[in-house]
């Protein structure tokens, strides 16, 4: 439970800045490789999670390309909770990017043009106009991503296995509980926790969605 929150929290927090940057690039950028970037971002959504997990394992295992480099500076991902966070982050990333991208696309580029004629550089236009207008979208994206990260199963079990106390997140624990005779009662407990967390996340994102509408319409919140 705590491990799950930690894994999902770290996954969401670490991928958020990158998610905003990628969403902005996809929403506003015109560059070579736009379609490619879009494809790569969405890949975890289309691929079977097991495949994603296996690809992560190949890349980040201690003898993998990136894993070897990380191992040299003392970071071990495979079969570790940090690896679970990576798997959850990668799987949740497309959902996060989609939510933020929608929010950015809802911002009228005319407002950004107006800001630039008032003396704001591209950076300041983003910080003072675009970003405040998409904050609710960012939060909604983060919550969706958090919920997805909490429930991530296939990539996690493939990449970091199912080690109690280390990589055994909530869904993995439910699965394990169902594998042993008489484990139903602890599985039910975990299921209830899981449902509560999911509903809570949904509720919060609904409230925020309403705020988005109000904010973009410029009404008093």
């Amino acid at each position: 439970m705590t491990l799950s929150l930690k894994v999902a929290g770290v996954a969401t927090a670490c991928s958020l800045p990158l998610g905003v940057a990628v969403a902005y690039a996809l929403a506003r950028g015109r560059f070579v490789g736009h379609g490619l970037l879009n494809g790569i971002v969405h890949l975890p959504l289309i691929l079977p999670p097991v495949v994603t997990g296996y690809l992560l394992l190949m890349g980040f295992a201690p003898n993998g390309v990136i894993g070897a480099a990380l191992a040299r500076i003392g970071i071990r991902l495979a079969f570790d909770w940090k690896g679970a966070a990576l798997a959850a982050g990668v799987m949740a990333f497309p959902l996060m990017v989609r939510a933020i991208r929608l929010a950015i696309e809802a911002v009228d580029p005319k407002l950004e043009a107006a800001a630039s004629t008032l003396g704001a550089s591209r950076f300041w236009v983003f910080v003072s106009v675009t970003l405040p207008l998409i904050v609710p979208g960012i939060i909604a994206g983060a919550i969706t991503a958090f919920a997805k990260a909490m429930g991530e199963f296939g990539a996690t079990i493939t990449f970091v296995s199912n080690i109690p106390g280390q990589t055994q997140t909530l869904p993995l624990a439910i699965y394990s509980a169902l594998q042993v005779p008489g484990g139903e009662s602890s599985a039910v407990k975990l299921v209830v926790i899981s449902i509560t967390l999911a509903l809570g996340a949904l509720l919060v994102s609904e409230v925020l969605a309403k705020r988005v509408a109000a904010r973009i319409a410029g009404r008093d919140a």
Partner: peptide, 14 residues
Amino acid sequence: RIGYVFQEARLFPH
């Protein structure tokens, strides 16, 4: 440093 008044006011809603 050229001010621009647009046809629509384009005020910042936030």
